[in-house]
Write a protein that binds this DNA or RNA. Structure first.
Lengths: 197, 197
DNA sequence: TTATATTTTGAATTTCGGTGTAAATACTAA
DNA sequence: TTAGTATTTACACCGAAATTCAAAATATAA
C-alpha cells in the first residue's frame, strides 16, 4: 500500500469512527454529514471523496464492529481452555467490546433497522455466525454433561440481550467498573446453565 | 364523553397503534406520516386533525407502552403472593407485553433517543419507576435471605436487557410459544438469585 | 520548477417529508 | 330540511439534509 493509499485508508477509518460516535449519540438520521464533517474539520463535500454515501458509512460501522467481535471470539475459541471458561471469557470479551468501543458497537447493536436490505443481510449473517459460536459452546457443555439441558438458542438470546442492553444504561461514572460488571454478568448469566449440586 | 369525542378518541388510538406498527417496522424517521395515513385510508392532512405533530405521536406510543407495563406490574405488586412469585410473574408479564404488544413496546424500548428532550424526561421517569419495582423485589428478597446478596441494580439490568432484546429475534413462527419463552426466561433469570443449596 | 495527480472546497441541486390552511364535504341536532 | 359544527381534502410551503460537481488548492514526482 502506497503512502497515499495508506493515508486515505487512515482518514476513512477516522471518518468511520467519528460517524459511529455521532450515530450512537444522536441516531443515524439526526447525525448529519455536516456534523460528521465539522467534527473532523472537513467540509461536507470532502467526506464524499472518501465514501460513497451515508448509508455506506453506517454499514462500515456495523461491519467493523462485527468483525472485531468475531475476531476476538475466534481467538478465544482457538485456546485450549475448558469449555465453560471459553464461554465465560467470550461473555466478558463481548462486554468489554460493548463498553470499550461503545459508540461503534452501540451503532451495530442499536441501529440495525436503519441499514438498507443488502447491507443488512451481510451484517445479519455475521451476527448469526457470531451467535453460533456461543450456541455451540452451550451445546457442547450440555453434551458433556457439564450443563443441564436447556434450549441453547434461548440461553444465548438471554446472554446476548442482557449484554447488548448495557449501552442503554452504562455510564463511566457508575459505581461498578467495566471489569466488575463483566465479572458479575458472566457469573450471573452462566450460573443457570449448571446443574444444581 | 359525547359520541363524537368518543369516536375521536378511538380514532386517535388507532392512529397511535398504526404509527407504532410503522415506527417499529421502519424506524421513526423512515415511517412517514404519508405511510401512516395511507395505512388508515386517511390523507396526511387529516392526521393533523387528531395530533399536533409526529413527535407527539411518538411520545404517545412511548407513554401508552410504559403505562401498560406499569399498570400490570402494580397489579402484581398488589397481590399477596410471595415475593419471588411476584418477581417471576413480573418478568412473565413484561415478556408477554413485549411479545404481545410488540410494535408498541418495541417503539418504547428501541427508539428512546428519537424523543425530544422534554418528552424523553417524562418517559425516562416512568421507566425508572417501573424498574424500581423490580429492584425493590430483589432487595426485599435479599433482606429476607431468600436471595443471595447481589447488586440488585445490575441484576435488574440483566433481566430487563434479556427481555427487552426479545423483539430483535422473536418470530411468531419460532419453535417456542410465548408462554414457553416466558417460562424459560423467568426461570433462567431468577435462578441465579437463589443461594446454592 | 513545472506539470500532473490528488484532495478539498463551496455552492448548487434535488428530493422529501412535516406542517399549515382554506375550501369542500359530511355529519348532527333542531 | 337546514344551520352550524366537525371532519377531510388537496395543495402549497418550507427547511433540512444528502448528493453532485466544477473549480480551486495542494501535494507529488520528474
Amino acid at each position: 500500500m502506497s503512502f497515499r493509499e495508506e493515508r486515505a485508508a487512515e482518514r476513512k477509518m477516522n471518518i468511520i469512527k467519528v460517524a459511529a460516535k455521532l450515530f450512537s449519540e444522536k441516531g443515524y438520521h439526526d447525525a448529519t454529514l455536516e456534523d460528521i464533517a465539522r467534527n473532523l474539520k472537513y467540509t461536507k463535500g470532502s467526506i464524499y471523496y472518501y465514501i460513497n454515501s451515508k448509508q455506506e458509512l453506517l454499514f462500515q460501522c456495523h461491519e467493523l464492529a462485527m468483525d472485531m467481535l468475531i475476531n476476538r471470539m475466534e481467538e478465544i475459541l482457538a485456546t485450549d481452555w475448558p469449555l465453560e471458561v471459553k464461554l465465560r471469557e467470550g461473555i466478558k470479551a463481548h462486554i468489554e467490546m460493548v463498553v470499550g468501543e461503545m459508540s461503534l458497537v452501540t451503532v451495530a447493536l442499536g441501529q440495525e433497522f436503519e441499514l438498507e436490505e443488502d447491507y443488512r443481510q451481510i451484517i445479519v449473517a455475521k451476527r448469526d455466525r457470531y451467535e453460533r459460536y456461543f450456541r455451540r459452546l452451550v451445546d457442547e457443555g450440555i453434551e458433556k454433561g457439564i450443563f443441564r439441558p436447556v434450549p441453547s438458542k434461548m440461553a444465548v438470546f438471554i446472554i446476548m440481550g442482557a449484554i447488548n442492553w448495557i449501552p442503554r444504561w452504562y455510564s463511566e461514572k457508575g459505581s461498578m467498573s467495566k471489569e466488575e460488571i463483566a465479572e458479575f454478568f458472566s457469573d450471573y448469566l452462566v450460573r443457570p446453565l449448571f446443574k444444581k449440586d
